[in-house]
């Protein structure tokens, strides 16, 4: 028996918004310690890694490890039926071919149940090595989304350049060029407004606008985003999911431009 109950059901709705444009389907690996999801987008350019720890759930039970292959378009349709303040429970029998979503209104007066068919997915699991990154940049997630959106008007790629002074985002195309520099912030009233650069070596890498913009669909999950970069390795874009876990997007840098 698998059962995971989340009083803050809106988090699960936001997680779905953060992955559904990138992935058509994905396997949810449910184990004693929590739920993991790892999947590449259709073009195999980026990788999504989602981690939801059992401690973050209000109730979590997983007697045996189960892998639930889900069509994310279908799951997204179902989660759209949950209100933002609903309590969401996911449950499945050990060898079931369906998963059930239960939505309870806060006052328990409305309870909705949706059963969804599971899929057998044959997806490659990739081992992501522990990496020491040369540059780790923390910035407000809304600011990062705004920068990606603004720069995508100029070209298909964004150059991210990190030095000890701060971080620079640039794009160039037919209409001209754009450069946005963010300096490290001094003292800020709210921690989430800070721009923090932890740099060992300066790094400049070029990434696809299209994918960065898809990652920013996770913005509602967290006020801050963390970018980790090293030369010639994938960028990591990480959003914390409340106290429950995180979503990380890995994106291969562009080469040869």
């Amino acid at each position: 028996m698998f059962e995971a109950r989340l009083v803050q059901g809106s988090l699960l709705k936001k997680v779905m918004e953060a992955i559904k444009d990138l992935l058509n389907e994905a396997s949810f690996d449910c184990a004693h310690s929590g739920i993991l999801l790892q999947a590449m987008d259709n073009s195999h350019v980026s990788l999504v890694s989602l981690n939801l720890r059992k401690e973050g759930f209000d109730k979590y039970r997983c007697d045996r490890n189960i892998v639930m292959g889900m069509n994310l378009t279908s799951m997204s349709k179902i989660l759209k039926c949950a209100s933002n303040d609903d309590i969401i429970t996911m449950k499945a029998q050990d060898s079931a071919d369906t998963v059930t979503f239960v939505f309870e209104s806060p006052n328990q007066e409305k309870v909705s149940e949706y059963e969804m068919k599971l899929m057998n997915l044959d997806q490659d699991q990739l081992g992501i090595p522990e990496t020491e990154y040369c540059c780790i940049i923390k910035l407000p997630s809304g600011e990062f989304a705004r920068i990606c959106r603004d720069l995508s008007q100029f070209g298909e790629s964004i150059v991210i350049s990190c030095t000890k002074e701060g971080v620079k985002f640039s794009a160039a195309g037919d209409i001209g060029t754009a450069n946005i520099k963010l300096a490290q912030t001094g003292t800020v009233d709210k921690e989430e407004d800070a721009v923090i650069v932890d740099m060992q070596e300066p790094v400049t890498l070029t990434f696809s606008c299209k994918y960065l913009n898809m990652f920013t669909k996770a913005t509602p999950l967290s006020p801050q985003v963390c970018l980790s970069m090293s030369p010639d390795v994938p960028l990591v874009v990480e959003y914390k999911i409340g106290e429950i876990g995180h979503i990380r997007y890995y994106l291969a840098p562009r080469i040869g431009d």
Partner: peptide, 14 residues
Amino acid sequence: PFQQRKINSFFRKV
């Protein structure tokens, strides 16, 4: 102009 590398060229299958 530029080429996009695949993500699975960086990580090994497990």
